[in-house]
């Protein structure tokens, strides 16, 4: 177990190192540096650009720059932002990532709160109107791009019903009350995942319901609720567990589009503008943050697997 943990942790670190290397190389392949736009926008002299470049050590050979970055990274220092000078990437990321993380978490909760019950009901009442309706709705939700769905929800909830302000993402995450405004964006973000989860739950439940132990549970006179929830659902959820890691990571890191529609102050817009501005610090910081979320989420799921399914041993 300890050996497995150490080797997995080493693999994870190696993966993150390679992601950092790839991002660093890609980033420096793009022509232009972080100070070049100042010449056009603010009319500064090329001499100033040269001094700034030297000051930040951007005229050093790339391997040296990369080694320096890694040296700071292992100390938890993500460096300075070039676009918003004087601010550290860590502070900026903490500020921008909070709304995205909150939104992703809310969406994750909604996906499970809707997807699992719908899938169970669909399986239990298979080939009835309820089943067809939920599967049809699921297919439709998955077939409409998330931004179109977001827009429809915006029209319905903000324009017609007037339950929420049109820019419902404004100030999201600043206070507890502002979280309520995130429900619609979270719903839009999680719609395709909800459809997928209910479909997977349905097929997993159907498989389990055919098993002998379910028949045994029924024949010994257990109530329908106990059979479905305690015997069937708990086993059906095992294959679904593998999905939770990538799903959570996907929701937390994939909200760029939803954020832009609802005017949410998240990390998406910040990343796009940092690429345009060649803000090396922010590009590296965001990519490393997202990659860490993805890698760690998958790692945790692998660790949790033997806990729910004793047949699986970590080796």
């Amino acid at each position: 177990m300890a050996r497995y943990l150490i080797s997995r942790a080493a693999e994870t670190l190696l993966t993150l190192f390679l992601v950092a290397l790839a991002t660093f190389l890609l980033m420096h392949t793009v022509p232009g540096g972080p100070f070049d736009r100042l010449v056009v926008e603010q009319g500064v002299s090329p001499d100033f650009v040269q001094r700034q470049t030297a000051y930040y050590g951007l005229d050093d050979p790339l391997p040296i720059q990369f080694a320096r970055y890694l040296g700071h990274l292992v100390q938890g220092d993500l460096g300075l932002s070039f676009q918003r000078q004087g601010l550290s990437v860590t502070d900026l990321l903490a500020d921008k990532f909070k709304p995205s993380l909150l939104l992703g978490t809310m969406s994750f909760a909604i996906v499970f709160a809707i997807g699992i019950p719908v899938g169970v009901i669909s399986a239990v009442r298979r080939n009835t109107a309820v089943d067809y309706a939920s599967r049809g709705l699921g297919t439709t939700l998955a077939a409409v791009p998330s931004f179109v769905l977001a827009f429809i929800l915006l029209l319905v909830f903000a324009v017609w019903l007037e339950w929420f302000p049109v820019r419902m993402g404004k100030g999201f995450g600043d206070s507890l009350a502002s979280l309520g405004n995130g429900i619609v964006p979270a719903l839009a973000l999680g719609a395709p995942a909800t459809a997928l989860l209910s479909r997977l739950t349905r097929s997993a439940m159907l498989e389990v319901l055919d098993q002998d132990y379910v028949r045994t549970a029924r024949s010994k006179g257990l109530g329908t609720g106990t059979v479905y929830l305690r015997h069937a659902l708990r086993n059906a959820l095992i294959p679904i567990l593998t999905l939770t890691g990538p799903l959570f990571a996907g929701l937390v890191t994939g909200s760029i589009i939803i954020e832009s529609i609802f005017g949410l102050p998240g990390i998406g817009a910040a990343y796009i503008s940092s690429v345009t501005a060649r803000d090396y610090g922010m590009i590296m910081g965001t990519t490393m943050l997202f990659a860490t979320v993805i890698v760690v989420a998958n790692f945790l799921v692998d660790l949790a697997y033997p806990l729910v399914d004793p047949r699986i041993r970590i080796s």
Binding site: L26, T29, V30, T253, V295
Partner: peptide
């Protein structure tokens, strides 16, 4: 493959686009 998988898709596409 692991590295490409761990790379956040949208970020990689946006980066590649500018490259």
């Amino acid at each position: 493959t692991d590295v490409a998988y761990a790379f956040p898709d949208l970020l990689l596409i946006i980066l590649l686009r500018s490259v």
